[in-house]
Amino acid sequence: MTEPPLLSVRGLDVRFGALAAVDDVSFDVWPGEVVAIVGESGSGKTTLLRSIHGFIRPTAGSVLYRSDRFGEVELTMLDEPRRRLLARTEWGFVHQNPRDGLRLSHSAGANVGERLMAAGARHWGKIRAQALAWLDRVEIDPTRIDDLPRTFSGGMQQRLQIARVLVTNPRLVLMDEPTGGLDVSVQARLLDLLRRLVADLGLSVILVTHDLGVARLLAQRILVMQRGRVVEAGLTDQVLDDPQHPYSQLLVSSVLFA
């Protein structure tokens, strides 16, 4: 209980001209915890995620990360070489569209191996062995290791992206609608896989999703965003079963039950 958070976001603002896409957002993520950020399109949840990762420079605020190799680092002030090193070793980013996170002209094995090499691995045989092990772990037939990802289905591509991100054993993974573009049956398989990997690897995850069912399944805590602000935060079952804010009540009551 006394361990410090892995990531502390304080007063984060991202402005595009007059628009406050992210407006004074603060929260913590502890080791081994999955935090879901929910809200409809345009609520700022993806912008928040991208600004934490450093794809977008925040206008104001602080993001404190407790790194294995550098100790406490203020991400908004971090120099580019160190940010890149952290991004390919201690963090991962899973894009909604797997094509944004993969190299389509490289084989599946090369996609997984490339990230290992970026993190310093050099021994080709070991890299290939790890790539094979990870393909198996994300339920991709290892005989497909030399195939191009463009010959894969959408669900397979997403699983390949996840293998590519997790192969370097990151501590913090940011996921932007990881089940977004997939069929429901493919989604269920991916959710089951994510659920197991997150638990087995003790990952900390910030998960952006508009799907409250996905949040219920994967997250311990939820932040509800509306127009760039966090309007409610709490335990997953508390926010979904007893939402307090009018906007959270609207989100919860809008879900269709099959």
């Binding site: 209980m1 502890w30 915890e33 959710l191 089951d192 659920r195 311990q220 805590r221 709490g234 335990l235």
Partner: peptide, 26 residues
């Protein structure tokens, strides 16, 4: 706080609800 409640649920309070919440594929 939420993390304290999670720790209480892990070690101290069990809850048997009226219906099982099924998880696909598990």
């Amino acid at each position: 706080d939420p993390r304290q409640i999670l720790s209480i649920r892990r070690d101290t309070i069990g809850h048997v609800s009226q219906f099982l919440r099924v998880i696909p594929r598990v």
